[in-house]
Every structure is written in structure tokens, then in C-alpha cells.
Design a protein around this nucleic acid. Structure first.
Lengths: 210, 210
DNA sequence: CGTGGGGTTGACTCAAGTCAATTTGGGTGG
DNA sequence: CCACCCAAATTGACTTGAGTCAACCCCACG
């Protein structure tokens, strides 16, 4: 099933008919509240599954858009997931996927609260890099399929701030940016920035949990 | 199974043996990264289930602490969840719970990025209120079991900021605070603050998603 | 060859963080 | 029962990182 760049796979509030695994291309999911505020909740690469958050309400809670011409493999919710008893393996792995998504969201929450703009961008790049490696691509050179605005939305920052953080990492000779092509020059330094080590060492601890 | 105030139900990295439903009392779950930064990811009231994020790794990813003397009902992970085939109802509802947790986390992410300090506190109070109502307590009067610091950590703010936001809501005659006792005087105004309506109307939109 | 969206940069502002001083209040031991 | 102690909460003064607004560049595309 092919999806053209910029087209929606589904919209928020659509009834859940399919979950999708990405075969080729990239997607973003956008959450929007009743005030018109919008936020990118995640980016999806080949082999990722989209739509898991719809399961409890049986309606999609976010909208999914293709960031480039893409291909997805639809999985019928009723046929594969809902029918009781059958396909225990699928259900088991579904539980795994859901739980993993929760962990991802928790990491995002922690990141949003504990890292400054540079740290967030570094974190984003490192995590992208590791996802590329898992799929057999280079860890150090890749092309972003999302705009600065999308990255900003995902990281809870404005696009201007993303530009400035890119600049900041560039002047430290940690990464090279040309448009949407990225080359990570010094992965260790990048991870150091991600850890927010230079300054603010013991910030954001809430102290001992009792 | 009784847990004393301040004691841990489990720690991050503990192997997953039980999920717990809260019978009485309140809990918080704390996530901490390798830098010692810590964050409260959620508060749990009676009938909530704790530990769901551990399912994919079979190890707890966060630590859970009792905020007051509490009682939990443990559910053996291996006996009830892991065994294939049996108890389809439990598994179905488990999927529901997981998916709902994802939605909650997404709402948190959206909130963190779109609301200022007052809005976040208002949002927190409204959501607490509705949870109390669901359990048969008053919507307008309740006692917080968590400290200002915990609230701040949960909302991505410092405890001083929480104090100031409390003050700000108090001077607007929206809530009354005495220590940890809260009385919501004007729920509508509180929800208005939560929506962040006074200022910053069209902020944080990322524009049309294509 | 103009037009528009994405990207970059600068100047300025302000909400929340930081640090520090002080008050409050619950719990404990004499 | 009271005095004391310590953690929690409050308040003020100051700092700062990221948001805001605006100008401008660049290139792809009709």
C-alpha cells in the first residue's frame, strides 16, 4: 500500500481498522489538542508499527503523515488482534510493542524535563543514528526526512532553536549539517552533549525518593 | 499487601514478578536516568495498575513509592499474563490498559510543550479532581498526598514555580490552598487556565501537517 | 523568472530557573 | 505536654535559555 509524500495514513479520531508496519519511507504522527496546538509524537521508519495508541479507544488519537513517498503493510485490527484465542504470538508481541512504546514515551518525558536544547538535539541524533544502524545503514551519515519544524515540534522546541542548536553542534565540530544531510563526526562528544554533562550536573534530581 | 509511607514497592531494574493494583493509598513512580536526574512519571490511586511499563523488558523501568500507608493487590506476571492461551479476558484488558497509558503519556507530552506553569498546575488539578470523582470523592475538595517537589517533577517544573503558580491561582480566587488541602472554588476558570486561553492563543501550532 | 516554503541569523523579551533567606508545621523524645 | 528539629513550603532578587518577531537567503518548481 503506497502513500505519497505529505499524505495522511489516517487522521485523529478515525475509527481503528488497521495497524500498519512501515515497509519503506518515513512517517510522523501528530497529536493535536482542541486548541489547535499540534505536536509530533513520533517518527516511524521501516519495520516500525504505527497506530498502537488507538487500541484502547478503537479510534486513532493522532494523525499519521508520510514524510516521503512510502509503503506500508496494513494489519487488520479485527482479523488479527481482536479475535480472542487465535494468534497468541501476535498478541504477545503486541503487548511487547505497547510496553516498549510506553518506555519510549517515558524517555521522552525525562528528556524534555532534563535536557536543554543542545542536549535534546544530540539525543535525537544519537537515537536516529542507532535506528539507522539497526536497519543496516550507516551510523554516521544519513539524511533527515523531516523538517526543522518537525524536529522542533518533536523535541518541544521552536524551529529557530533547532537551527541554533545545529549551529552550536557544528561549531563544536561534532556534526556536519548540509541541508538535511547529517554527518556525525564525533559520536562520543555528541553523546556527552546528550548527557548534558558540560554544565548542569546535578540538576533536575528530585532528591532521594524518600 | 501493605506498604508503609515512603517505602518502595519495587525499584527500577528489579525483575518483573508482579503487577499491582492499588487497593488503598497513593503511589508515585519515579524514572531516573544514568546521570541521577529523576522524574515522577505518574501518580497512582486506588484501582490503578502499577508496573505496566515493565512488560517488554520483564524488568521494572521505574521505581514505585508509597506516598502514604497503602495497600496493593499483587498480580503474578507469570501466572496471569505470560501463560499463553489462558485468561484471554485479562490479556485483552491488559492491552487496553497499556494503550491507555500511551494515551496518557502523549497527553503529558503535549501538555509539557504547550502549557505554561499555571496551565500545567491547572491541568493537574482538574485531572486529579476527575480521578477523585470517578472514585466517589468530592470533585472540589481533596487532600494532596504528594509534595510540591513531586508535583513539580511530574509537571516538569521546580517546586518554587509550583508555589508561585499556586499563589497565582489563589489570588485569582480560583482555588484555596491550605497546606496540602485543596478546594477548587471556580472549576470553569480553572479549566480556562488549563486551556491556556488568556494569552498565547495560536502558539505551538506546527502549522498544517502538510 | 518570479514565488513560496524551508532554513538561517540577529535583537530583544520574558517565563521559569537559581540561589538564598525565612516561615511553617508535623513528628519525636524528654 | 512542651520544646525542639527538620523537612516542606514560601517568598524575594536576580539570571538566563529559549521564545518571539523580523529580515533575509536559498533553491525547487511552476
Amino acid at each position: 500500500m503506497k502513500i505519497k509524500k505529505g499524505c495522511a495514513l489516517f487522521h485523529a479520531n478515525d475509527p481503528l481498522h488497521f495497524l500498519y508496519t512501515v515497509s519503506a519511507g518515513t512517517f510522523k504522527t501528530c497529536l493535536s489538542d482542541n486548541e489547535g496546538r499540534e505536536r509530533v509524537t513520533n517518527f516511524f521508519m521501516p519495520s516500525d508499527m504505527i497506530g498502537l495508541d488507538a487500541i484502547s479507544t478503537e479510534r486513532h488519537t493522532c494523525s499519521a503523515f508520510a514524510l516521503e513517498d512510502s509503503v506500508v503493510f496494513p494489519i487488520s485490527y479485527y482479523r488479527w488482534i481482536l479475535l480472542p484465542g487465535d494468534f497468541p504470538t501476535i498478541k504477545q508481541s503486541l503487548t511487547q510493542l505497547l510496553s516498549r512504546e510506553i518506555i519510549h514515551d517515558h524517555e521522552m518525558l525525562l528528556m524534555l524535563c532534563s535536557l536543554n536544547a543542545d542536549g535534546r538535539l544530540a539525543n535525537f541524533l544519537v537515537s536516529l543514528s542507532s535506528r539507522f544502524v539497526k536497519r543496516g545503514y550507516s551510523a554516521n551519515k544519513f539524511v533527515l526526512s523531516m523538517s526543522r519544524r518537525d524536529i522542533g515540534s518533536y523535541l518541544g522546541l521552536r524551529l529557530e532553536t533547532i537551527c541554533r542548536s545545529i549551529n552550536s553542534l557544528r561549531t563544536l565540530n561534532i556534526v556536519k549539517f548540509t541541508g538535511r544531510s547529517v554527518e556525525i563526526v564525533d559520536m562520543l562528544a555528541l553523546k556527552a552533549v546528550e548527557q548534558g554533562c558540560e554544565k548542569r550536573n546535578k540538576r533536575w534530581s528530585i532528591g532521594h525518593c524518600f
